[in-house]
């Protein structure tokens, strides 16, 4: 593995760590960059019990089969991307081992394991007005009756495609966005959050 200090997160140049506060106080919206996560694009046949079993064997995770759901197991979380596609998210630098385990387990099946860890930046959005900020740019129904913790969806936020993952009741969201769009989305979120008061926190 290459030296970690050589790496730059997608939003490193915005100096977010320097702006980060320990306590967001009264801010209605809290933003952070959450860099470094391992991300693997996993393809395989959801109808094939052999595939599902092999994945579970390899990384300790039962893949979510229902659209818009997620599942966690082992050290990883899988987000549903399509009927035969998942994003497997690992802790920082966990993608290598996970990908290797998956490739080994799936080598005789029609499946694909692709390391896409640097494809998407992750922006953390929380605070009591987090949902309002998303509603400004996202046409999904995010009402708690419809979209709660553990739900995920691919949609657009403003003019960027985003993989949205609600992580708790607060609500808190992780926004996975393609790296080249990350700065645009961050600036958009800052602008949309201005109405409610914004704090930046460390997301490392």
């Amino acid at each position: 593995m290459a030296e970690a200090y050589l790496r730059l997160s997608a939003l490193a140049h915005l100096g977010l760590e320097a702006r980060a506060v320990a306590d967001p106080g009264e801010a209605g919206v809290v933003l952070s960059e959450r860099p470094g996560r391992g991300q693997i694009d996993l393809r395989g046949e959801a109808e094939d019990a052999g595939f599902l079993g092999a994945v579970e064997q390899a990384i300790g995770l039962a893949l979510p089969l229902e659209a818009g759901t997620t599942a966690s197991g082992g050290a990883a979380t899988a987000l549903w991307l399509g009927p035969n596609e998942w994003l497997v998210v690992t802790p920082p630098d966990g993608q290598g081992a996970a990908a290797e385990a998956l490739r080994a387990a799936l080598k005789d099946l029609w499946a694909a394991v692709t390391d896409v860890s640097d494809s998407r930046a992750v922006i953390g959005l929380s605070g009591r007005h987090a949902r309002d900020v998303l509603m400004k740019g996202c046409s999904l129904d995010l009402h708690p009756r419809v979209f709660g913790p553990g739900r995920s969806a691919q949609s657009a936020v403003a003019r960027a495609l985003v993989l949205l993952h609600q992580t708790d009741e607060a609500p808190s969201y992780d926004l996975y966005v393609h790296r080249s769009f990350a700065e645009y989305l961050w600036l958009w979120l800052e602008d949309a959050a201005a109405e409610y008061g914004l704090a930046v926190v460390s997301g490392g």
Partner: peptide, 18 residues
């Protein structure tokens, strides 16, 4: 709306843009 100025359209930047 807020699709004016710098936010009129996404500006995609490479990892080396800076």
């Amino acid at each position: 709306g807020r699709e004016v100025g710098a936010l009129a359209d996404p500006v995609r930047k490479t990892a080396i843009h800076r």
